[in-house]
Design a protein around this nucleic acid. Structure first.
Lengths: 199, 199
DNA sequence: AATGTTACCGGACAATTGTCCGGTTGTCAA
DNA sequence: TTGACAACCGGACAATTGTCCGGTAACATT
């Protein structure tokens, strides 16, 4: 007979809010976990019981906006039901790439703190990622059954690579070392990797 | 009038050897920098003066094998001078992907320890990576000038994405969570992303 | 209101990273 | 041979991560 305390959720929210605030003011890297605990008025034990590490915390912060993004994407795709799957796939990536670029620094942090035999789910096993993966896999499968290309043997694999091919480190390098803007990255990526795939 | 001490190189080699040994025996993550210093019979100051962090050390360890790989790849490509660039590109990736997969855990470590405003070169700015990038960019440029496809507007960008689209985290996930073998990854990647690009 | 459970507080603690620096040793050049 | 100087040794140190635990406060059930 487990007991649910209604202050538990409040504490979580306090932590998330304090963390988001500190991250925005000083940058993710410059903020320590103990600092977050103190700012949230929370003990260290409490903080770590909820979020095993900074990456875990970032994942939680990212989750909400990511889910909003996914549902909006899903809505957009639904409205295109009468268009060919190729167009839907292209539209998805024209929206996804900027989103990935904008959130690269969070994902870096999430992946940087992942341990080897972690019981906690991978970024790739997180809810938002799985939703996105399924959405894209569906489009590719549809393209495949239409027989418009011979290349898409393994839709899930292809989807996985497409999503993660703009890995956070790559994005940051393209932005800061090569000087590309978000839109340039998005445009070129789609031109080079989505168009050839669907024609 | 800088003075070169010939024991300096010896010290570097000692460190690299001790690190490689410890990494192989206990895994990269389980070995601390102080441990490496002690095993190499070297002071901590000395260790950190040469290698700013564990990633830096891993990069140095990876460098040699990577350069060997690159030169062998270059040789292979040279022998295919009379074949179309498309075939050369395909051959490159059929060899590169397994290499990337096998070395994923090193690259994870290298990228995990990178700081923001680091004076030290990025992984993407390392010598091996630049060589590889140029090799692949060359092929794509050649394909482009042959006019066989309209998609390759920005060869360097395309090359960059292609190389890093199998990011280390993605590779590890495909292997350990999805159960793909190295060869399956290589085969599917080439089928989905190299073939469509060059036809 | 009393009780048993659950969560929280918050400091101590160990481990690691990375820095610094005084003292020492080896090397090169004159 | 000797002096200048680079490189090294190695411990002290601060900061961070993550764990643990005894004591305390809040909650839900009765």
């Amino acid at each position: 007979m487990p007991v649910n305390r209604r202050d538990a959720q409040e504490t979580s929210d306090l932590i998330l809010q304090a963390a988001a605030d500190l991250f925005n003011r000083h940058g993710i890297e410059a903020v320590s976990m103990h600092q977050i605990a103190k700012a949230a008025g929370v003990g260290q034990g409490t903080l770590y019981r909820r979020y095993a590490n900074k990456g875990d915390l970032c994942m939680e912060l990212l989750k909400d906006s990511f889910l909003v993004f996914c549902s909006r994407l899903d809505e957009t795709v639904s409205k295109m039901a009468d268009e060919p799957a190729q167009e839907r796939l292209y539209t998805i990536f024209r929206q996804l790439i900027p989103h990935t670029v904008e959130n690269a620094k969070w994902i870096v942090e999430i992946q940087a703190h992942q341990r080897h035999g972690d019981p906690k789910p991978d970024f790739f096993q997180s809810e938002p990622y799985r939703i996105l993966l399924r959405l894209i896999t569906n489009q590719i499968e549809e393209i495949q059954t239409m027989g418009s290309t011979a290349f898409l043997h393994d839709p899930a694999f292809t989807a996985h690579i497409l999503i993660s091919s703009l890995s956070p480190h790559t994005v940051l390098h393209l932005q800061h070392q090569c000087g590309y803007t978000t839109d340039e990255i998005s445009e070129r990526f789609c031109a080079s990797f989505i168009r050839p795939l669907i024609r």
